[in-house]
Design a protein around this nucleic acid. Sequence first.
DNA 1: GAGCTTCGGAGACCTGGATC
DNA 2: GATCCAGGTCTCCGAAGCTC
Length: 456
Amino acid sequence: MSKQGEGKIDRLRKNIRQHDILYYVKDSPTISDREYDLLMRELQDLEGKFPEFICKESPTQRVGGKVSEKFNTVRHSTPMLSLDNTYSVDELKEFHARVLKGLGNFPSKDIEYFVELKFDGLAVALTYEKGVFVQGATRGNGKEGEDITANLRTIKSIPLTIPMDKEKINFLEVRGEVFMPRESFRELNKIREEDNEVSFANPRNAAAGSLRLLDPAITASRRLDIFVYGLSAEPVPIKTHSETQNMLQRLGFKLNMNHYICGCFENVLPYVEKWRTEKNNLEYDVDGLVIKVNSLSFQKKLGATTKFPRWAVAYKYEAEKAETKVENIVCQVGRTGAITPVALLTPVFISGSTVSRATLHNEDEIKRKDIRVGDRVVIEKSGEIIPKVVKVILSTKVKRGALFKMPAQCPECRGVLFRPEKEAILRCVNYGCPAQLKERLLHFASRNAMDIDHLA
DNA sequence: GAGCTTCGGAGACCTGGATC
DNA sequence: GATCCAGGTCTCCGAAGCTC
């Protein structure tokens, strides 16, 4: 009886996994939702009768239900690098020139490129051992990320088991981008509004927040999705990036099929133009394209800097812009003592979030752009959906205000001025003269009518 | 409020080539 | 060999929004 139960559970699991791939990965279900639910219920009933056969790879165990207290740190087997960005065709050409140079002035016509969409989500790494999904992690600082396995297991397009034996590999790490489809985002915000909760600013932030929830059951309700785009396997049986895509597809992962193999660099450029407008018709956020050298041996030869691979680059489409007013300019002190002038702006909604502050970087930058309080300025977000460093790109004088002066340099040592300690002691890095320095700073502040709240 | 996400900018640092 | 310069690389920091 027990043996029969085990066999039936096994068949049901395989059947459900197959339908998961058809529904969540290939987007072509062959049974109705009700039929799928009946299969799942049958499996749950059998696992209830034979609890000794319940395993964490079972489709019924996607949501473990266990609420964790914190996320553990995970060290990546190979660094998870981000991509260098380009914003124009000229910069793309420079990338191509660096590739040619890096390969010893290889003939341009012999470099094949792989072009794919750049999804606006969170990069994750999925680790499989002996065909079982054992760990999922965020990118973190590239070397270490957070263990979010429990939350990733709730994403139904991530297979919990894969046929690694068919590919003759023992270890597999898959990299992809978790995102929230626009429809899921709209529905989620609608529910939050009905519940008088604060809406999420944009799908990327909603996805980021959802993956860092301590309760996987809530993550499961957020309807996240994933596109995978890369892998490292042992032993490595592949020679090109396009072959990795084929392998990932055979293993049952969800890939985005809007990708192209370009026989030469010139063939890349039409796709840049094609997706400039077409990206807006997709049901998920895309902020550019990724252009990769297709040959893995070339990728290896080109290597990487500490931050970016030299064999791939992102092409980012022009960011949304908005006009607003500089209300004030204040000094902001970082935790190491570095002072950054920041423009306080009339809040303006741009690319999914409200921007009210913009870094002005340093005194030279302020002088170069001649930015003053009261100026009308055009801002653009340099990181698209998440407002990271906001660039002030144009200053249109409407009403002149006080010219900002920045007391960021010690008149004597010309170095970093001070470092605020927890006890609010100001200390000159070069001279170690807190009292004198504090006096000098307060003098500067009063002379220039500056906001000194940050220094107090 | 703390601590996390991602990624761009600034500036320090490093490296290699040119010139003396 | 010393010096200068340009370009590449690295590290630090901060942005807004999120969860805890």
